[in-house]
Structures are given as C-alpha cells and as structure tokens.
Write a protein that binds this DNA or RNA. Structure first.
Length: 209
DNA sequence: GAGGAGATCGTCT
DNA sequence: GACGATCTCCTCT
C-alpha cells in the first residue's frame, strides 16, 4: 500500500450513477485530506443519499440556485453547505452534469492524523493509546458537522472542489477494505420524505453517529 | 444517560 | 423574516 497521500482518488465514473448506489459503495472508503503538516484520513462509515429534484428533503428539490449548483454539476465534486449558523456539511455530487444528486458524509472512523484532528476539534486525547476509548474517539468525526471540522472542510475552501483530481488536497480513495454488512435506515434530521430508507452505515461500526 | 435549549448566519420566501 | 441534512452544554435522573 502506497502512502495515503499518493493513492489515486476514485474516478468520476464511481460517482456517475444513482446516489443510493454511490452512498452504499462509499462505505469503507477513506476520505483523505492533505495538509502541510501531514495526512488526515478517516474511514467512511455512514452516508445518506439525496436524490435530486424528486427528493423533497434534498437541497436540490426546489431547483438550481447559486447555493446548490454543485449538485447539478458533474459527478465527484464537493458540495459544502453551512447550517445552523455553526456547522459545515460535506457532500459529493453524483449523476451526470445537468442531473442533480448527491451523497452526504455523516461519520468517519479516524485513521490517520488522529492527534491533529482531535486538536482542531477540541477533543482531549489521552497519550496512551489504550486509554483512547471509543467514547472519546467518537467526538472527533462522528457526525457531519464534526467530521467537517476535523478535516477543516469549509465552503470557501472546498465547495465545488473536484474530488477526483490527482491534484486535489481532498479526495476519496479505496484501500481494499471490505465492508461485511450494510444497514439501511431513515435519514437523520429531516422532516420531508423522512421515512425513505436512504441512510447507509456499516453494521456494528462503533463510529456511526 | 436522557432530554431540552441556545448558538448563529446564509439562503430563500 | 423564518428556518435549517447539527453540536454542545446544562440540568435532571
């Protein structure tokens, strides 16, 4: 396995299909951020699919605006939005240029740069690895706002970034991790289309939000 | 551990 | 002018 910063990102074709399939396929992949002080990475353990103009809960439901235009663009681009006056959430666009759709990243299992991510999150991480309980590690990147802060994702910095470019400092890579079982449930925190089973997570993974 | 309220601002009505 | 694809802190148990 090459160093994480040198592994090629997933290609546009991976995202050029139904968001439900992308959301499921993204589980187990690594979300990687390259920074001057090192690599930050987490395994994707929880996602949600947003289907586009037919999905009442999706930002793209009311049509294209300046805010959501990335969702209508080519596949594999980052859609970052600001919510509740405090948090950023990261999505990736799906389907061909001109067709809306995306996948929200909801939780990561920290893999690399754990100390650096804990620091920016304000999480007090014990020196001794055996004292780093799951309950502490979960505070780093379990939840859409938390994982965005851990990786330094902002709208200004990352919105519309091409995650499939070899030059991108934010990318998704496959390290051949095999997901055993996926569970599906309703999406979190929405009112419209609240019953649709469009949330996907790795069964039994403790870092699910 | 559970539940409730406040934070805080860009976006759309 | 209302509200949201959330998180944290505080209180009560």
């Amino acid at each position: 396995m090459k160093p994480l910063g040198r592994v090629a990102p997933l290609k546009p074709d991976f995202y050029n299909r139904d968001p439900r399939r992308v959301a499921r396929a993204l589980l187990g992949k690594l979300l990687v951020r390259k920074t001057p002080s090192g690599i930050l990475a987490g395994r994707i353990v929880e996602t949600e699919a947003y289907l586009g103009e037919d999905d009442a809960a999706a930002h793209s439901a009311a049509g294209k605006t300046a805010r959501n235009s990335v969702l209508f663009g080519p596949p594999g681009h980052a859609y970052v939005y600001f919510i509740y006056g405090t948090h950023y959430c990261l999505n990736v666009s799906c389907l061909p240029d001109g067709v809306a759709g995306g996948v929200l990243f909801r939780a990561l299992e920290p893999v690399a740069g754990i100390e650096q991510m804990a620091k920016v999150r304000g999480v007090d991480l014990p020196e001794e690895p055996e004292l780093r309980k799951i309950s502490i590690l979960k505070k780093i990147s379990s939840g859409p706002g938390r994982m965005s802060e851990a990786l330094g994702v902002t709208r200004l910095r990352d919105n519309d970034k091409n995650l499939t470019s070899p030059r991108s400092d934010l990318r998704i890579v496959d390290d051949d991790y095999r997901v055993r079982r996926v569970t599906v449930s309703p999406r979190i925190g929405i009112v419209k289309a609240a019953k649709d089973l469009l949330r996907y997570f790795i069964a039994g993974n403790p870092f699910v939000s």
